[in-house]
Design a protein around this nucleic acid. Structure first.
Length: 298
DNA sequence: TTCCAGGGGTAGA
DNA sequence: TCTACCCATGGA
């Protein structure tokens, strides 16, 4: 699936349909949160990752038939495997979007045409489910800019600049998370999630994601403190599972209202009925209807 | 001041 | 299962 090409450079290929790096980056707000950084002029997604004992600055470029990962120096075979696995997760290179645009067209032809034009479909995920859970909890019930501030301050807990291990959050404790990261009432949720992660349960769940039924996946995700149905669905999408139902949040509703209900606030049931023709891609269709609107605010 | 932002937990019905 | 209420924070 990937091959080394040139000194230290790694080429990764997506399953199924081609991709555009920039569209994955702008799939939602993660690119604004450390350890991600987006260089718009160079079109480079930067990311600091801990590989074994060292922290490396990865640069990710390209799109279409493949993505290039540029490590700062030569990697061992074992290090390459780790880098490839993480970047594949971040860019959802293993998610086969075949049929998505056709399914979306059954709901909204104009939306589907728009998604085709920009090559939308894959989402930017963290390097791990743990990272996605932390960031998603920070994104609940706050303006996105505020969530970015929380995540940025949480990231400061890891001295080497990589995404913090759960132990760093446990060391900070509820008081530290409140006072330093300003996470407010989310502090006990983050500590609870950190305990699960430190016990290996989040990694275990991540490993099980492909084999779980939608119901079981949801059951295990909402068992994480601070993760309710909406957040669970969102992180499931990031893990490549769009079959867990619709994540309807405060951004989805006005987006659906504008696009499909002439500005009138729809009920959840009305939204569900609207996207139902997309079948297995209903959640992705709704997601992108929301995000295409959000992207216009960038 | 008051409202509310990419919700979740809880008690009570 | 469903609803009402509370929850820290900070910008509008």
């Amino acid at each position: 699936m990937s091959a080394s090409d040139g000194p230290g450079r790694l080429r990764l290929q997506p399953v199924g349909s081609p991709m555009r790096l920039e569209r994955v980056v702008f799939s939602h707000g993660w690119f604004q949160t450390p350890p991600f950084a987006w260089d718009p002029d160079a079109g480079v997604l930067e990311r600091r990752e801990r590989i074994g004992a060292r922290a490396l600055d990865l640069r990710i470029t390209g799109g279409g038939r493949g993505v290039w990962v540029h490590p700062p120096d030569e990697l061992s075979a074992a290090e390459r495997r780790i880098v490839v696995a993480r970047v594949r997760r971040m860019l959802q290179l293993g998610v086969d979007l075949d049929g998505f645009h056709e399914a979306a067209a059954r709901v909204d032809e104009a939306l589907a045409a728009d998604l085709r034009t920009v090559g939308a479909g894959r989402l930017l995920a963290g390097a791990s489910l743990w990272e996605d859970v932390v960031k998603a909890i920070c994104g609940t019930n706050v303006a996105w800019r505020q969530a970015v501030n929380m995540i940025t301050r949480i990231a400061e807990l890891e001295p080497d600049g990589t995404f913090p291990e759960p132990e760093r959050l446990l060391e900070a404790g509820e008081d530290g998370l409140r006072e330093h990261a300003r996470v407010g009432y989310r502090a006990p949720y983050l500590v609870g999630a950190s305990r699960l992660a430190a016990d290996g349960e989040i990694a275990s769940l991540e490993a099980d994601v492909p084999s779980l039924s939608p119901e079981e996946l949801m059951r295990r995700l909402v068992a994480v403190p601070g993760v309710g149905p909406t957040t669970a669905r969102f992180v499931a999408y990031l893990a490549g599972r769009f079959d867990v139902g619709l994540a309807i949040d405060s951004a989805t509703i006005p987006a659906a209202a504008d696009r499909w209900f002439e500005g009138t606030r729809p009920t959840d049931a009305q939204i569900a009925a609207k996207v139902e023709p997309a079948g297995e891609w209903a959640a992705a269709t709704l997601y992108w209807a929301t995000m295409r609107r959000w992207q216009q605010t960038l």
